[in-house]
């Protein structure tokens, strides 16, 4: 048994400790908002926050995740910055298929929490680990700037 702290809740799971957090979230805990895209930390679809840091759940064993607090897309709206990011995404019509967007939102939220006024270069570097095959990058940039301009409090 490993005890995980996910979105403010302690959860016991009965899987080997080397199992990646991604599959425990999705298959064991039934939280499918966090997506699988590559399994090798190449695409960012599985991004969650571990103690506030953007983390690729697909390569994070639960033994490591258990050391901290996990926040997923399902709960990021409870954070002011996360909520503002979600609103900007909807408002600017960022998503196409939407599949990458949970990961994009988690990465963007982490960026804005750290750096409320990022430049284009800051955005490119913070978001470079997140692939969007539909090609929504220009709107993602615009949405991040929108949150930065408005501030996260609204």
């Amino acid at each position: 048994m490993v005890t995980l702290h996910v979105n403010g809740k302690a959860q016991q799971v009965d899987v080997p400790p080397e199992t990646p957090l991604l599959w425990v979230l999705r298959d064991v805990l039934g939280m499918t908002g966090t997506k699988f895209g590559c399994g090798m930390a190449l695409c960012g679809a599985c991004t969650v926050h571990l103690d506030g840091r953007p983390t690729r759940a697909c390569i994070t064993p639960i033994s490591a995740a258990a050391q901290g607090k996990v926040t997923t897309i399902e709960a990021i709206g409870g954070d002011q910055v996360g909520k503002a990011v979600q609103a900007a995404w909807v408002d600017l019509g960022v998503p196409h298929c939407g599949y990458c967007q949970a990961g994009q939102i988690m990465s963007a939220t982490a960026l804005l929490q750290q750096n409320p006024k990022p430049t284009d270069a800051d955005i490119d570097s913070a978001m470079s680990g997140n692939i969007c095959r539909c090609g929504t990058y220009t709107r993602i940039r615009a949405a991040i700037h929108r949150v930065a301009q408005k501030g996260a409090t609204k």
Partner: peptide
Amino acid sequence: LKLVDGPNIASGKAQYGIDTR
């Protein structure tokens, strides 16, 4: 009009083929 699936996508509730349970 905004995308009908926008809010679900932004909150992780949208259901894709890989999400069926």
